[in-house]
Amino acid sequence: MSKPKQKIYLTPTPVRIWHWLNAFGFLALILSGAQIRYPEFVNFFGSYKAAIRLHDTAGIVVSISFCLWLTYYLVVARSLLKLYVPSGDDLRLGLFRQMLFYFFNYFRGKPNPHVTTPDNKFNPLQKSAYLVIMMVLVPLVILTGFMLMNIELLRPLVLLLGGIKIIAGAHFLLACILIAFLFTHVYLATLGHTPFAHFKPMWTGWEEHEDEHGKTH
């Protein structure tokens, strides 16, 4: 006997547009960045200059996308702090419960301890990760990328921070951290009641939950 289903409208259209614009922008940045960093081994776009042009263009698109995302959650939805900042309960108990689920209880068929709602979309582990990613790492990678695109204009600031090699090294290291997060993000998204349950809301806006004794997961 199949379990009853419940649908909730989880992801508004502006967020879905931002998500896929950001995803394709990051993919372009990863591929062009690999060619810029390792031109002797990687050649996706023909010339080195073509890779730089694509990387700069994708960087501008992702930067604008980030600003639109921040504006939407701060000004339109007014839910940035509620959705992305962990509460005291999240930090005291939620993080441990969620890690226990991902590393152990999921494989035993146990339900997700986090109940997803439009006002509480992210579990404590997601909130903590997204807070660091979106509020610290992404702004830093945008800032270092902007400095590398405008070295002459920002020469005093570049020199103050240690020179081009330091800025380029920091930009590359930040990018590597974001790429590692991307793989983790995709994997964890498969841990729903079906492998694609958490992907559907990014296409349709609606997420389907199985209802077990009044609990959604």
Rank of each mutant, 00 (worst) to 15 (best):
Y38G: 05
L182M: 13
E210S: 08
Y9V: 05
V76W: 14
N105I: 05
H114S: 02
W20H: 02
G88L: 12
T71Q: 06
P124E: 03
L131F: 15
P14T: 03
F196D: 08
M147V: 07
K5M: 12
Y102W: 06
G145N: 04
L100F: 09
N123S: 05
L137R: 01
G109P: 03
V186L: 11
N150H: 14
L10Q: 13
H198C: 08
T204M: 05
L188N: 07
F146M: 14
Y72A: 06
I142M: 07
N43Y: 08
L143R: 10
T144I: 04
I52E: 07
V75Y: 11
A197I: 03
I60W: 11
I17W: 10
A34G: 01
L100M: 11
F45G: 00
I64C: 08
P111F: 01
I64A: 11
I166W: 12
P156W: 03
E208F: 07
H171C: 02
R97E: 12
L148A: 06
K127E: 05
L131M: 14
G46M: 00
S65F: 07
S63N: 04
N120Y: 06
G163A: 08
T13S: 13
H185P: 00
A23N: 02
L74W: 09
T184C: 10
K110C: 08
K82D: 13
L153R: 15
V42M: 08
W69Y: 15
L21I: 13
F24L: 11
T13P: 14
H55L: 07
L29D: 00
E210C: 08
E152P: 12
W20E: 00
K200H: 12
P14W: 06
I164G: 09
I166M: 12
F96W: 14
P4C: 04
H171A: 00
T13V: 15
Y38W: 13
F44D: 01
A197K: 03
S65C: 09
L174I: 00
L160G: 12
G46K: 01
V85C: 11
A34Q: 01
F104D: 13
T204D: 05
G88K: 11
L188H: 03
T116Q: 15
G33Q: 00
P86D: 03
T71I: 11
L29F: 00
M202K: 03
V138P: 07
M149N: 15
L93P: 03
L81R: 14
V61K: 04
G25C: 03
E40C: 04
I177D: 04
H213C: 12
N123M: 07
F104Q: 13
A170D: 09
V132S: 12
M134N: 14
I17C: 05
S32P: 02
G59K: 00
L125H: 08
T11Q: 15
F199E: 01
N105V: 04
L93H: 15
F44N: 01
S128C: 09
T216S: 15
F66V: 02
D211C: 13
L159I: 13
W20N: 01
A170F: 11
Y130E: 04
